[in-house]
């Protein structure tokens, strides 16, 4: 452990040294001119934070400067994203763009301090994972068809737990309900943890959650997986059908990638894209992402930009229909 601490300190010293030397290196016009900060708009410790750090740790040695993950959580990941949007476009500031801040927030927040497309250059998609519809272990529905039947039989429909108003899983639930012609009432919680507790306890019969965070509970038999939202079945759960298979034509993923403030030089963007895509091919990274439940996708900056634009377009009508808007 002492060795590890020394290591941590050494990084810190490198950073400080670099900070002191900053004026000199700026003149040299080389990139990276100092430690790069990667703004993670979530609190430390979550799955997304872990994955972002995995990438940051490997990006540093490749660029010859440490990449330091900086957590700036709050307001549905929009605070950290706004800080990144206002940062200097010199390649020294990166941000973890994601479905909340760059897919849904543009429609959800009426006065957002950034434009998810115009204020950023999107560099590479890192990972995406499907969501899953789970049921309380003792709930009578064994399949999605059962849910539809039961929900239609009840005038006031079925309740489902969600991690927060305007979250991707909330909106996905509404999309599924609309497509299947049933009534599902969202019951909101402060995060996925409490919602999962109440699903396990049977307070709510159903829940939509990201597959990575729900997988341990599905394997443990505390909840039953009914369908996943991927385009094909998840390799981890080959027995669970997709929504498409059960007759609802909806494919939806949670995702995050790496972006930079608009105006970041194209050469830097290209270099970062290349390095990130190579990192995502490293066997160790692939193994850790598998374990965490995040699928890896290979995308160029252009593909990722198009992907973000498409996501904004997909979620806009859903957000509007849900009635959830934030001033």
């Amino acid at each position: 452990m002492s060795e590890r601490m020394r290591l941590a300190r050494r990084t810190v010293l490198t950073v400080l040294g670099a900070a002191l030397a900053a004026p000199a290196t700026l003149r040299a016009q080389s990139w990276p001119s100092g430690p790069i900060r990667l703004i993670v708009p979530f609190a430390p410790g979550g799955t997304t934070d872990v994955m972002a750090r995995l990438v940051a740790d490997r990006l540093g040695p490749r660029l010859g400067q440490p990449v330091i993950a900086e957590n700036r959580a709050g307001a549905g990941a929009t605070i950290g994203s706004a800080i990144a949007a206002q940062a200097a476009p010199d390649g020294q500031t990166l941000v973890m763009s994601n479905i909340a801040s760059h897919g849904i927030a543009p429609t959800l927040y009426r006065s957002l301090r950034y434009d998810a497309m115009k204020d950023f250059v999107h560099i590479a998609l890192v990972t995406r994972n499907p969501s899953v519809m789970v049921a309380h272990a003792g709930f009578e529905a064994r399949s999605f068809a059962d849910v539809v039947r039961i929900a239609k039989a009840r005038p006031d429909g079925l309740d489902f737990g969600v991690s927060g108003a305007g979250s991707s899983n909330h909106l996905l639930g509404l999309r599924i309900a609309q497509a299947a012609g049933i009534r599902l009432n969202p019951i909101f919680y402060r995060g996925a943890g409490p919602a999962m507790t109440d699903t396990i306890a049977g307070v709510v019969p159903l829940m939509f959650d990201g597959l990575p965070s729900a997988s341990a509970h599905i394997r443990g038999g505390r909840v039953r997986a009914l369908a996943t939202s991927g385009s094909e079945r998840s390799p981890a759960f080959p027995d669970v059908p997709t929504f498409r298979e059960v007759g609802v034509d909806i494919v939806s993923y949670q995702w995050f990638g790496i972006s930079a403030p608009a105006g970041t030089p194209a050469a830097i963007v290209a270099r970062l894209n290349r390095e990130i895509r190579e990192i995502l091919k490293e066997p160790e990274v692939v193994a850790r992402f598998d374990q965490l439940g995040g699928g890896i996708v290979d995308m160029t900056p252009e593909q990722y930009s198009a992907f973000v634009a498409e996501e904004i377009a997909v979620w806009a009508p859903v957000v509007r229909a849900s009635g959830a808007t934030v001033e």
Binding site: A8, V12, V15, L16, A22, P23, E70
Partner: peptide, 15 residues
């Protein structure tokens, strides 16, 4: 804070 805890905070006006 800076050396040990490594909190992210600029140290000098030019940092």
């Amino acid at each position: 804070f800076i050396w040990y805890l490594d909190i992210r905070i600029p140290v000098f006006p030019w940092s």
